[in-house]
Design a binder for these strands. Structure first.
Lengths: 224, 224
DNA sequence: GTCTATATCACGATAGAC
DNA sequence: GTCTATCGTGATATAGAC
């Protein structure tokens, strides 16, 4: 049985099915145990081969990790780009659709994005630095979106868009700590909740200029 | 030089200065590299001793890790309890004060809380399970706070408090990924930004019943 | 493409001198 | 309380048979 040309080496290289199976298993393990806490033997066992065989598909453990982190971004970027809502829609709807897409990339396309989010900060710096530009590109997509919405006048005047984006990212990404795709809360409802909380907050009353200003708190009220 | 009774072993045991120095160094390393990615030799080197000497102070690597995670919760609980704002204050002020306290525990009392937040999910299950009750206790403090505010009628009627709390936690905890205590943004201003975003959202208009409801989006507007 | 076998090394942990 | 020395283990990675 001769192996035919499966090697259409484009850039980036297409993943063979074998590589994909390895990445799937490795990502699952790394999500639970971290990168350093996951051994090549474990990865190999979970795909049903021996450790040495992994090196036929990847040059090193780090290469596996890098591929996982990259795919994690890829999933996010693709989800963002595939959002089926026109930019001419009302800003709330546009926003919610993108929140839904980001949450989808965390829960509906394998563990790649979740691994990216949870393990990026402890990754070896060589791995981390190689990924940074792609991360930045994804974050820029969000910045552009928020700026577009802001230019329409939908945000409070004093709203810092950079902080708003980072806080929203934190709210979305941290759902991996507690959201269960098979639980009673549907992911669409989760997206609604996160987007609504981002958009209008939790309070009953609308925004007021001094509602939360620090100066509004009388010193006398402080105890201790 | 005879060693006098420094061992008033209460429960929980008081940390000796030696133990504290080790925990400080270990927490810093673990924050960067993760638990599995940090070796006892590294920890020892960063406190200026040899690896074997660590075992005079701790029985195992896991014991060091457990102590760090526990102290991380301790810092949060203490900060929460020390919030200098009476519960009779307006809910926005009360909330902002607690957000400030939580952020303080992340940035102003060593790396312990940050380590807890970033590495809990990949910790060995034995370590994780021992900590869960204390985590729950801290989360209960927040639940109580939010319920108290809600019972005053300050939240929107449809607001799920559980989700609101989790989203707020995510927003606060994820600041470790980007906030710099020595940067241009002061931690007080960060707390204001996070609390305001939680309270009133980013939008200019106040909450409306259908502003973000999914049904509000016309099907015709969907593209692709 | 997977196997076995192994080289090389770093890890956590222990023992005993000082 | 810290040291040196070392044990036993498991890690990544390689080489070559099939």
């Amino acid at each position: 049985m001769t192996t035919h040309v499966e090697a259409r080496q484009s850039v980036p290289a297409l993943e063979s099915v074998a590589r994909s199976r390895i990445l799937d298993s490795a990502a699952e393990l790394i999500l639970d145990q971290g990168f350093a806490g996951t051994s090549m033997r474990e990865v190999a066992a979970s795909v049903g081969i021996k450790a040495g065989s992994l090196y036929h598909h990847f040059a090193s453990k780090e290469e596996i990790f890098s591929a996982i982190l990259e795919r994690g971004i890829e999933v996010m970027v693709d989800s963002f780009a595939a959002v089926p809502v026109a930019v001419t829609e009302p800003p709330e709807a546009l926003l919610r659709a993108h929140v839904r897409a980001h949450l989808g990339s965390l829960f509906e396309f394998g563990p790649y994005t979740a691994v990216h989010v949870t393990t990026f900060r402890s990754a070896p710096s060589s791995v981390r630095e190689a990924i940074v530009p792609r991360r930045d590109a994804y974050e820029a997509m969000w910045s552009t979106l928020l700026h577009r919405i802001a230019s329409g006048g939908a945000f409070r005047d004093d709203q810092d868009l950079g902080i708003a984006r980072l806080v929203l990212f934190g709210a979305m990404n941290s759902t991996i700590e507690w959201f269960d795709l098979d639980g009673s809360l549907a992911i669409d409802d989760l997206a609604d909740a996160v987007a609504t909380q981002f958009w209008q907050g939790v309070s009953r009353e609308g925004p007021s200029k001094e509602g939360l200003s620090r100066e509004g708190l009388s010193r006398e009220a402080a105890i201790q």
